[in-house]
């Protein structure tokens, strides 16, 4: 079988079209480089960055040096808890790449931190409350686990020494707002009581036993006395539990 010769215009036409597209890419790389080169949209945390080289060093990728230029020691001191700051400082001293835990270009609403806690209030809670971080209302440990009280710590240490399975009391995969502890007490005041009272934990006002199933008692603390005083004028004096008849669920 013999094929016909290639048309003489074929190669010049393709070459011309290629050249036009390359020029278009060059022009577009100046105007909107992300559209031409990025594997995905930037998250809402970095979308206001001016250019690619804010984070990317040419032929070296997103380097820690570029991250630290914005996420400096001062940045962490202003916005993070001391535990989180220390955690990141140790990783920086070990020269751990920021990209080991933080990933970008996965869309505007994507989480950029590996194993990040899902926000159960929805993303608009920051705008609605005038805050910029979960730590404005919530207390977190070095990894986003909740800080335990000494009694609870001792309780769990004893169970660990007895090699009791964690899943004997804790159950997961039941939804973002579900309790993960068996017989855990539901907060009858609602989640916003912490912001309303300026506290960060149930233990600011209540005394609990080793098992949180035991009925809590009120602590003799300034916050508790203040709330008694505030309740007295507008409502009736007496037990704070009486407030729940109107303020149930926070």
């Amino acid at each position: 079988m013999r094929y016909h010769p290639l048309p003489r215009t074929a190669v010049p036409v393709v070459a011309l079209v290629t050249l036009v597209l390359v020029v278009w890419i060059g022009w577009g790389s100046v105007r909107s480089p992300a559209s031409f080169w990025a594997p995905g949209d930037l998250s809402r945390y970095h979308v206001d960055q001016a250019g690619c080289t804010h984070c990317h060093e040419p032929f070296r990728g997103p380097s820690a040096a570029r991250c630290v230029s914005c996420h400096s020691e001062r940045y962490f001191a202003d916005r993070a808890t001391p535990a989180v700051t220390t955690w990141h400082r140790e990783l920086a001293m070990q020269r751990t790449a920021c990209t080991a835990c933080h990933m970008e270009h996965r869309g505007a609403l994507a989480q950029i931190t590996e194993q990040a806690r899902t926000n159960p209030h929805g993303e608009f809670v920051f705008r609605a409350t005038g805050t910029s971080s979960c730590t404005a209302c919530h207390e977190f440990g070095a990894r986003v686990a909740i800080r335990p009280t000494p009694a609870v710590t001792t309780w769990h240490r004893e169970l660990a020494m007895q090699r009791t399975a964690c899943t004997a009391c804790h159950m997961e995969h039941r939804g973002a707002l579900a309790q993960i502890t068996e017989q855990a007490r539901t907060n009858p005041h609602g989640e916003f009581v912490f912001r309303a009272t300026g506290t960060s934990s149930c233990t600011a006002c209540h005394e609990f036993g080793a098992r949180v199933a035991i009925r809590p008692t009120l602590r003799d603390e300034p916050i508790v006395r203040r709330l008694y005083e505030q309740g007295r004028g507008a409502h009736r004096p007496g037990r704070i539990a009486g407030c729940l008849s109107c303020h149930s669920g926070g």
Binding site: A15, L21, C52
Partner: peptide
């Protein structure tokens, strides 16, 4: 015939741009 060999030129040019671009932004290592 008129498409296969000539389009190879466009394929090579854009593949080269993609590889160089990926190495530029993501790093060589």
């Amino acid at each position: 015939q008129a498409i296969h060999a000539p389009m190879t030129l466009m394929f090579l040019v854009f593949t080269l741009l993609h590889v160089v671009g990926a190495l530029f932004f993501a790093g060589i290592s």
